[in-house]
Design a protein around this nucleic acid. Structure first.
Lengths: 189, 189
DNA sequence: GTCTATACTTTGATAGAC
DNA sequence: GTCTATCAAAGTATAGAC
C-alpha cells in the first residue's frame, strides 16, 4: 500500500480511539511507518488537511456500506435493522472502538476549525440525504422523510456515544429497535 | 464564588467547546483567574481528577433539569418534548456549543482513561435509570422501559452531534419528534 | 518522494516562596 | 491557600540532504 493511504488508514484508526486532539502527528507517522515529512508532502495543510481527508473518506466509505445494506435488505425496516446490527457487532469485535471517527471529531472541533466542522456536516448531510431518498422511495411522506432520516442518523450516533461509554452493545441494539419502530410508523401511515 | 467552583465552571465551559484533549490546564487557570497551583491543590489527581469531577457534576445538574421538566410536564410526551425543545433553544442561544460536555468526553476518552469512561457511563446510566422509572410510572411495559429510555438518551446525544456539526437546531427538533413518537407508541400499547 | 534533524510552542506537572 | 518559576515531554511545523 502507498504511503498516502497508510497515513490515512492509521489516522482513521487513531481518530476512532482517541479523537482528533488526542492523536499526535508523531503517533501517526510511527504507525504508518512513514517519514515525518511525508505527512506534509501529501497534506500540505498539515494536521487539519489530513483530518479533513480522513473525515471525508470515512464518510464516503460509510455511505457505501449503508447503500449496500439497503440494497440487500428486503424492506426499509430490514435495512435499518441490519445497519444497527452490523454496528453493534463491529463494536463488540473491536472492543468498543468508535465505529466511525466522524462524531468524535464533530464534537471536538465544531467550535475550533471551520474546515473540519464543514467536513463533518457534509458527511452527515450525505447520509441524511441518501437515507431520506430511500425512505421516500419506500413510501414515506416526502415532507417527513428528511426528519425521519435525521432521527435514524441521530439514533446511530447517539448509540455510539452510549455504547462506547457503557462498553456494551445494548445501546446500539436498543436504538436500532427504536429506529425500526419510527420508520415503520412512518411507512404504514 | 470560591476558587474550586470557578475552576469547575470554566473547565465545564471549555470542555463543551473543545472537549477534554482540546482544553489546556493553562487555559483553565487563566479563565478561572486562579493560580496554577490551585488546580493541584483542589484536584491532586491533576487534569484527570478535574475532568472526572466536571463530568459527574454536569451529569448531576442535567439529571436535576430533566427531573424538573418531567415534574412540570402534563404527561410523558410533554416531558420528552420539552427536554428536546429546551436543548434546541440552548444550542441556538449559545451559538451551537455542546449543551453538555459529557458526550464529547465519552467519545474522546473511553479508550484512554478508565476513570473518565466510568464517570461518563455512570452519568448516562443515571439518566437512563431515571427516565426508565418515569416511563414505567406512566404505564410503559417494565420490560421495555429501559430500552425506551436508552433510545431517548441516544436521540438526544446524537442530536447534539448533528446539531453541532450542521450548526442548526433542526436535528434536535427532529430527534425530539422521533422521541415523542417512540414514547407515545410504547404508552398506548 | 523519502528521510532526518531540528525549531518553536504548548502541554501537564512539580517545587518552593509567601 | 495563593502564586511564581521552572521542568521534561509532547505537540505541530519546517528546512534541507539524499
Amino acid at each position: 500500500m502507498n504511503t498516502r493511504d497508510r497515513i490515512l488508514d492509521v489516522t482513521t484508526e487513531l481518530f476512532r480511539r482517541h479523537g482528533y486532539n488526542g492523536t499526535g502527528l508523531k503517533q501517526i507517522v510511527a504507525g504508518a511507518n512513514a517519514p515525518f515529512g511525508s505527512v506534509y508532502h501529501f497534506f500540505p495543510g498539515g494536521k487539519e488537511e489530513l483530518g479533513e481527508a480522513v473525515i471525508r473518506r470515512a464518510g464516503q466509505m460509510y455511505l457505501e456500506v449503508i447503500e449496500a445494506i439497503w440494497d440487500a435488505a428486503a424492506d426499509p425496516r430490514g435495512g435499518v435493522r441490519d445497519i444497527f446490527h452490523g454496528a453493534a457487532a463491529a463494536m463488540v469485535e473491536t472492543d468498543y472502538i468508535d465505529p466511525s471517527p466522524i462524531g468524535t471529531v464533530a464534537l471536538e472541533m465544531a467550535s475550533t476549525s471551520e474546515p473540519l466542522r464543514q467536513a463533518t456536516a457534509d458527511v452527515f448531510e450525505s447520509w441524511i440525504g441518501y437515507s431520506a431518498a430511500r425512505l421516500e422511495a419506500a413510501g414515506a411522506d416526502p415532507k417527513r422523510s428528511r426528519e425521519l432520516a435525521i432521527a435514524v442518523v441521530a439514533l446511530l450516533q447517539g448509540a455510539f456515544v452510549l455504547g462506547r461509554a457503557l462498553r456494551s452493545p445494548e445501546p446500539v441494539e436498543a436504538a436500532g429497535r427504536a429506529a425500526v419502530s419510527v420508520v415503520a410508523a412512518a411507512l404504514t401511515r
